[in-house]
């Protein structure tokens, strides 16, 4: 359906925006390495089914490979910045202070409690859903502490939030046309959207009222 396609495309757009900008400008200003590392973990644990070779469609398989590849490439580019622009890298690391163990640990426990089947594949899949829902927190934490967001960060988070928002009408659509209600995805998806709404609210206020950028 249209919501699903548009959602996936904005997800793809968010990563392309990030990749292209970092590649072109060699700037990682305002980007959280921790959030990016969490996304690599999210994609690798979610798309483990690629290894079973029970592929659903060309679209599905290709997108999964692109998401894994692009997220790893982002990390590579950030690491390249380490040698190229040591000062900017150090500055980024000094501000990227969120403790990700407080996200990974609880997500692992939630995956053990909420899953469809107690198998490695299903546990990893559930873990990836929980982790994705909170993976942006180090990034938002960084923004709230610096009090300002660059164009790159803003566009990136905007595209990511759009992807999340579009998945909601997609689920409603699928519920009515296919009778499908996948509770884990819906719940973690709503949780993730709620986190983004905070960003959107502040962004809206900043754009409309021209006030300084701040997150509660």
């Amino acid at each position: 359906n249209i919501f699903r396609i548009l959602g996936d495309l904005s997800h793809l757009a968010s990563i392309v925006i990030l990749l292209r900008t970092v590649q072109k400008t060699r700037q990682v200003d305002g980007i959280s390495l921790k959030t990016q590392l969490l996304y690599v973990l999210v994609f690798c644990t979610r798309y483990l089914d690629l290894l079973t070779f029970r592929w659903k469609s060309v679209y599905n398989t290709l997108m999964k490979m692109v998401f894994i590849g692009a997220s790893v490439r982002v990390i590579q580019l950030i690491q390249e910045c380490k040698t190229r622009n040591a000062v900017a890298y150090k500055d980024m690391m000094a501000r990227d202070t969120f403790q990700i163990k407080y996200l990974v640990g609880p997500c692992a426990i939630l995956a053990l409690v909420f899953n469809y089947k107690f198998t490695v594949l299903e546990l990893c899949w559930s873990f990836s859903l929980w982790l994705e829902s909170v993976a942006i927190l180090p990034q938002l934490f960084m923004l709230s502490r610096s009090g300002k967001a660059g164009t790159l960060t803003t566009h990136y988070i905007f595209a990511l939030g759009l992807y999340r928002a579009l998945y909601i009408p997609n689920w409603i659509w699928r519920y009515y046309t296919e009778g499908r209600l996948e509770k884990l995805s819906v719940f973690t998806g709503l949780l993730q959207t709620a986190l983004y709404s905070d960003f959107f609210y502040i962004y809206y206020k900043k754009v409309i009222k021209g006030a300084g950028f701040e997150l509660p």
Binding site: H11, F67, Y116, E122, N170, R180
Partner: peptide, 10 residues
Amino acid sequence: EDKLLEHDEL
């Protein structure tokens, strides 16, 4: 139940 295990979303 089996349909839910398909995980066809990204």
